[in-house]
Simulated scan of single mutants.
Amino acid sequence: MSEAPKTNWYDAFPAPKATAALLSREAALASLSSSDLLLVDVRRTDYEGGTIRGSINLPAQSFYMNTAVLYNLCKRAGVKQVAFYCGSSSGRGPRCSGWFADYLAERGETDIQSLTLVGGIKGWVKAGASFTQAVDGYDPEYWKQFDESN
């Protein structure tokens, strides 16, 4: 009896063709009060410890089916940059920003840019007090588990 091959949630969707540009933490922090930037937190089961101020939560597992909804909202609101992040921005964040970049390219959209936030929420929190002050619901106890000095 052989085991069924393990599948990932994202196997049900096409792989992104595009690799979105990166957005540094510093640039994102400087733009938090700007209506030009929308941050999208794509965590689902690990959506804990707080989220970057002003972010919306669209879990990666359902994002592909909702790409058009996000696009239409951004278009109407005049958003110029959409930056995606997850825990470390090494899986879900880049995948979603790639899907969104593909969607933009298919429509010839040049007024909106899809980006990936460097380091994700973990990198944001590690960057220090000026960053953690911009985390709604920040829970320092939660983040201690990721501190290498423990």
Rank of each mutant, 00 (worst) to 15 (best):
D11T: 11
Y71N: 02
P16H: 10
V125N: 05
V40F: 06
F13T: 05
R95V: 10
K126E: 13
G78S: 08
S55N: 08
A127C: 03
Y138P: 03
S62A: 12
D36T: 12
Y47Q: 13
D11I: 10
G93Y: 02
I121S: 01
V118P: 00
V79A: 02
F84G: 05
Y10W: 10
F84E: 07
E141W: 00
E48C: 05
G49M: 04
P5T: 05
F146N: 01
I56T: 15
K6C: 01
I52H: 07
G54H: 07
V125W: 04
L70V: 07
S31H: 02
K6G: 01
R53S: 14
M65D: 12
R76C: 00
G120W: 00
V69Y: 06
V79E: 04
D139R: 13
A18F: 00
M1T: 11
V82R: 01
D136G: 02
E141T: 14
S88K: 15
L23R: 12
R25D: 00
N8D: 13
N72L: 14
F63Q: 01
G137F: 02
L117W: 01
S55K: 03
I112Q: 11
W99S: 10
D11P: 06
L73Q: 11
A60C: 09
S24H: 01
K126Q: 12
P59Q: 11
V69F: 13
N72C: 01
Q81D: 10
G98H: 05
P5I: 04
F84N: 07
L32P: 04
L39R: 06
G137A: 12
G123F: 06
L115Q: 11
K17G: 00
K6M: 11
K6H: 09
S55C: 07
S24A: 13
T19W: 00
D36S: 13
F84M: 09
Q133M: 07
E26C: 00
I121K: 00
R44W: 09
D46T: 14
T7E: 07
V69R: 15
L37Q: 07
L38Y: 03
W143I: 05
V42K: 07
K80N: 02
